[in-house]
Design a binder for these strands. Structure first.
Ligand code: MN
Ligand code: MN
Ligand code: ZN
Ligand code: ZN
Lengths: 138, 138
DNA sequence: AACCCATTTGCAATATCGTTGCAACTTTTA
DNA sequence: TAAAAGTTGCAACGATATTGCAAATGGGTT
């Protein structure tokens, strides 16, 4: 039935108006969101602090993940199903459109392995590509 | 003769105590630095605002470059010689050691090209690798 | 439905971070 | 050495983020 509530329950979180609202923005909107996007656009009014705490909780429970950015803003996007609790599996490439300024998770593109200098041991890698997105081309 | 002053002069900047001090930290230290590192460790006391403005100026003149991070902190490192004015050529991989917490520019490793989904046009790419660095291994 | 208890929320206070305008000071150049 | 240009520090401000605590809400029970 209701996807939004299911996600919250699966994460063992109480289903509250605020959480439903915020999660809905991720599920329906599709793209990446910043704290400010959420604070401004929720239908119900939600306190700033609650937004911070909700995002933090969602990250901890594997509902959303932080997106690396090149301009030190903080962005979040929905995780895939197999993320949970403290364990994320979001090693995909992120694409930032310089026209519409939206950030897309390219779930199907994984970060390539590269050859590091001798002595460096890689554990995790992130890749951010900037360019023109599908909708903004031509 | 004095490398520090040369770099400043080449960038058409006045040679001041503050700038010499900050630039020296980059040249001697070798690694990446955050605003806070600089504010705390300069031998002469330099105002917060001046540090901000100095870093900004150095970036504009191609002396240092911003380093992308995954935790939305802002880091800077020395540019290679061929960066100047507003034109940077720092598309190398950055390595963050999870032990010593230092960030290294891997100047010789360029960010690999990848195949994006149809319709996405790449313009610039960044890659950040986390792991254990040369000095912290074993 | 009324209750209890754990969880969640909002508010106020506080901390950190970064920017701007302006007057005083320093560096460069003549 | 004096004028002009460039740079700095201070104070004020704005944005962003964190914490403690009391009030409100949600989930489970009777
Ligand atoms: Mn993603
Ligand atoms: Mn670098
Ligand atoms: Zn776009
Ligand atoms: Zn290390």
């Amino acid at each position: 039935m209701n996807t939004i509530e299911d996600i919250l329950k699966k994460a063992k979180l109480n289903v509250t108006e605020g959480r439903k609202n915020i999660l809905e923005m991720f599920v329906l909107g599709g793209g990446a969101l910043a704290h400010a996007d959420i604070e401004k656009n929720t239908s119900v009014s939600i306190d700033r602090v609650t937004v911070y705490r909700t995002l933090q909780t969602f990250v901890e429970r594997g509902i959303i993940h932080l997106i690396p950015t090149t301009d030190n803003t903080i962005l979040y996007a929905l995780c895939k199903d197999n993320c949970s609790d403290g364990h994320h599996h979001d090693e995909h490439v992120h694409f930032i459109c310089i026209t519409c300024n939206k950030t897309n998770c390219l779930e199907e593109i994984t970060v390539p392995n590269i050859q590091l200098p001798k002595g460096f041991k890689p554990i995790q890698a992130a890749m951010i590509v900037k360019g023109i997105c599908l909708h903004c081309k031509n």
